[in-house]
Design a protein around this nucleic acid. Structure first.
Ligand SMILES: [Mn+2]
Ligand SMILES: [Mn+2]
Ligand SMILES: [Mn+2]
Ligand SMILES: [Mn+2]
Lengths: 228, 228
DNA sequence: ACAAAAATTTAGGTCTAGCTAATAATGAGT
DNA sequence: ACTCATTATTAGCTAGACCTAAATTTTTGT
């Protein structure tokens, strides 16, 4: 009876690799170096793991060419992303975590909770569509809302924009933005985008002006707002 | 500068061994066989792990004589037990898990949550003193309420007793007891304790009579109730 | 077209946590 | 005191997931 092999749960390392590839490349392909940097794991270790993931049918991998997710790999990555984002929402909404603290805890818990737990948690939270950073939460069936938001630096000068999400990659960046109220939902007017150094100047609803250097500006994503 | 070695977190295997020894032997000593049975790990593997735990200063271990927890070992075991029981309470009270389902989920989550998470969860739950099975929850400082309850089989015939806890070791046992309402808080009258086969017969508040064989009777713990 | 730089892979480890099979110690019963 | 069943330990292996150093491939800049 082929196809009946009992598929025991994937390790948390494997899950993190799949998530990393998904984050870096989405449907495209991620290089050894990129994955290595993302996970803080030596390049040699990444090479080795990509080989294993390929054996398992989770990625397509070509030596020296990088790896891309197969259907199964992507499915698993999105399952984890769903868990991660629901857990973040819970930590923030029910346990009083600060906006900045949630990520690390979710990074561990995502591997320990069951599907049962995840769906009951989603229920408790009222099936939110976005996590606290503004990232969309994949549906239980693996569907993910297409993301039409753009980096702040690409917004048109003079336009009114609403922050749709903030990158959760760097804690210091998150801290800085959080302290100044530059969080999802906030309405901004773009005053200047200086191509010379990438500094973007915005004005918030309170009339406060913020000059954001490239690394900060790249962490803020917005949607154009109907002129008001 | 001695004593400054950064102590990285203990693995979940290590935690489960410490908990097992604590459960089996409390302050006394647990044999290789007992630990092996408790964790479903081969005896040879247990021997090996007990050696490592000894190296780490978590147990005292004498070849062929079994192992007992050191102060640090006991501390770590209780930290996990606290987490486990708080998580069980949460799953039952907030996520709608059934009384029987909670154990396995808690067994994994206990290793993934931080101290931060644990204490915030305790707060959310209102610092409960007991978990859903009636087991006392160790305090954050490592204190544990002494347990004065006795197995149902040792209660005096004719006496009124209240169920204080139910062993969470076996799911079928838990199912059986749960279905019949034999849960913590329930008031019972002991009708017969037959030493011949260990069967204990009790009558519940609704007048229902239950004859419990030894394995079931050993899973039910009670406290004598002031005669009423 | 080619040399140097950058990225990647291979080779050869380590550590954890398990396993089986073989051997040895312990302790109960005669 | 001895024998044998039980319990435990040792020896030798495996797999996962990492590492460093050395070799190789790819890419880039001239
Ligand atoms: Mn993770
Ligand atoms: Mn997030
Ligand atoms: Mn556990
Ligand atoms: Mn319990």
């Amino acid at each position: 009876m082929p196809g009946t092999e009992t598929t025991r749960p994937l390790s948390s390392s494997i899950g993190d690799y799949l998530k990393a590839i998904w984050t870096i490349a989405g449907t495209g392909s991620a290089s050894t170096k990129e994955v290595s940097g993302h996970l803080s794991v030596a390049p040699a270790s990444v090479t080795n793991m990509l080989g294993r993931l390929q054996e398992m049918g989770l990625v397509r991998y070509e030596r020296y060419r990088g790896a891309s997710l197969t259907g199964r790999g992507r499915e698993e990555a999105l399952r984890l992303v769903r868990r991660h984002r629901l857990i973040e929402s819970f930590l923030l909404g029910h346990l009083g975590y600060s906006w900045q603290e949630v990520h690390d805890e979710a990074e561990r818990l995502e591997h320990a909770v069951s599907d049962e737990f995840t769906e009951r948690l989603a229920e408790l939270l009222g099936h939110p569509a976005h996590d606290p950073h503004g990232d969309p939460i994949p549906a239980a069936d693996g569907t993910l809302e297409p993301d039409d938001s753009l980096p702040l630096g690409e917004a048109g000068v003079g336009g009114r924009v609403r922050i749709s999400k903030v990158s959760d990659e760097s804690t210091p960046v998150l801290d800085y933005l959080g302290e100044r109220g530059l969080v999802p939902g906030r309405l901004l007017t773009v005053r200047e985008v200086r191509s010379l150094d990438g500094v973007v100047t915005v004005e918030d609803e309170g009339g406060e002006t913020h000059a954001l250097g490239e690394p900060l500006a790249r962490a803020v994503f917005v949607r154009e707002e109907a002129a008001g």
